Amino acid sequence: MDVLLPEDSVAKKKYLVTDALPYANGKLHLGHIAGSHLPGDIYVRYQRLKGHDVLHIGGTDDHGVPITLTADKAGITPKEVVDTYYPIIFNSLKSLGITFDNFSQTSRPIHHTTSRDFFTRLHENDRFDLREVDQLYCPSTNRSLPDRYVEGTCPHCKYERARGDQCENCGTMLDGIQLINPVSDLCDVPLEVRRSSHWYFKLSEAQENLEHWLKGKTDWKDSVLNYCAGWFALGLEDRPITRDL
């Protein structure tokens, strides 16, 4: 039985709680539940028991390399992948008693409109650079191979199964071009390096403001603060926000 605390025992506040969005390219695993959805559900229930007004938002990430890679391997379209796994993910969470006020998808029109609005406003405020960069390319399939399309040896910790976006062993953010001996399951010939134009978000310019903002987060876990401090110590790097698929 739920025990409701008196609403007048605390000042009523509004909370917006968002869970990390799982890619709609497969079933949920324990890490999804333990790392994001269960903590979010517990926090939402706790704040509602205290009488606060809470909006719980979730959904699936329907874009990106994990979706297209799954589609390529299965010989189907990205939309077919998303249409298959969105209801599976939604029903899995529902069966665990984890509910949302809105469980959406990034492929819905409202998300496309909002993303374009963000891009336009940031571009108008000179937050982007258009740069020529090297990237891996498969000549046999005539396609670029961004992040998870390639694996290789991490240049930092020498882990041999590092992905082209991040090393799962040491946690370092990577670019496929940085990997040692990169290979791809989709390409049966040696990979080439080609030039391409991409938009970069100038994250490095925000480091001073972000460091100042983080100092006020006295309620964050020490492990999280130390992780962020490690990024600042290395220096924030500008991040690409577009890729060729």
Rank of each mutant, 00 (worst) to 15 (best):
Q207V: 08
N169I: 01
G152M: 00
P146D: 02
M173E: 13
D101Q: 08
V3R: 06
L245M: 11
C170G: 07
T153Y: 04
E192C: 03
M1G: 14
V133H: 07
F201L: 15
K27P: 13
I110R: 12
E124M: 08
D83F: 00
Y23R: 00
I33V: 14
R163L: 12
P22A: 04
L203R: 03
G97D: 11
D244L: 12
P39E: 02
L69W: 00
G64K: 05
R48M: 05
K94S: 14
Y159C: 01
I57D: 09
G26P: 10
D83Y: 02
R243I: 03
R143W: 00
S144D: 08
H111A: 15
D8I: 06
K79W: 04
P109A: 01
L38I: 10
L210V: 05
V150K: 02
G97S: 09
T153M: 13
G40Y: 02
D2M: 02
S104Q: 12
V81A: 08
R45G: 01
Y23H: 04
L236Y: 00
Q178M: 11
R116K: 15
Q166C: 12
S104H: 09
D134S: 06
I241M: 08
S196W: 04
E80P: 09
A34K: 12
L136G: 04
Y43M: 15
C138Q: 03
K217C: 07
I76T: 15
E208P: 04
S115R: 09
R143C: 05
R48H: 06
S184T: 11
R194L: 06
T84I: 00
S92C: 09
Y85G: 12
T68A: 06
K27F: 04
D53M: 02
A206Y: 05
R121E: 15
S140R: 07
C228R: 09
D147V: 05
C228Y: 11
V3S: 07
C167F: 00
H52L: 08
D61V: 08
T113L: 12
V10A: 10
F232K: 14
A74D: 13
D53T: 08
L21N: 05
A233E: 15
Y23G: 01
V17A: 10
D61N: 10
R243C: 08
L69Q: 11
W213Q: 11
L16D: 07
V44D: 05
L28I: 10
T18V: 13
S197R: 13
L225F: 02
L69I: 07
I177V: 14
I177C: 00
G75I: 06
R143A: 13
L16H: 09
L4V: 13
Y15K: 13
I98N: 08
H32T: 14
K94N: 15
S196T: 10
E208F: 01
S36D: 13
Q207A: 09
A162P: 08
D117W: 07
V82G: 04
L214C: 05
L69C: 07
H156V: 13
N169W: 00
I110Q: 15
P182D: 02
C170F: 01
W220M: 06
A24R: 06
D62N: 11
R148E: 14
G164A: 03
I57A: 06
G152A: 03
E205T: 08
N25K: 02
Y23W: 04
R108Q: 14
Y15T: 12
G230P: 10
R243D: 07
G31R: 09
I110A: 14
S223I: 12
G40A: 11
Y43S: 10
D41F: 05
Q166K: 15
C157W: 08
S196N: 11
A229W: 03
L136R: 11
S204H: 09
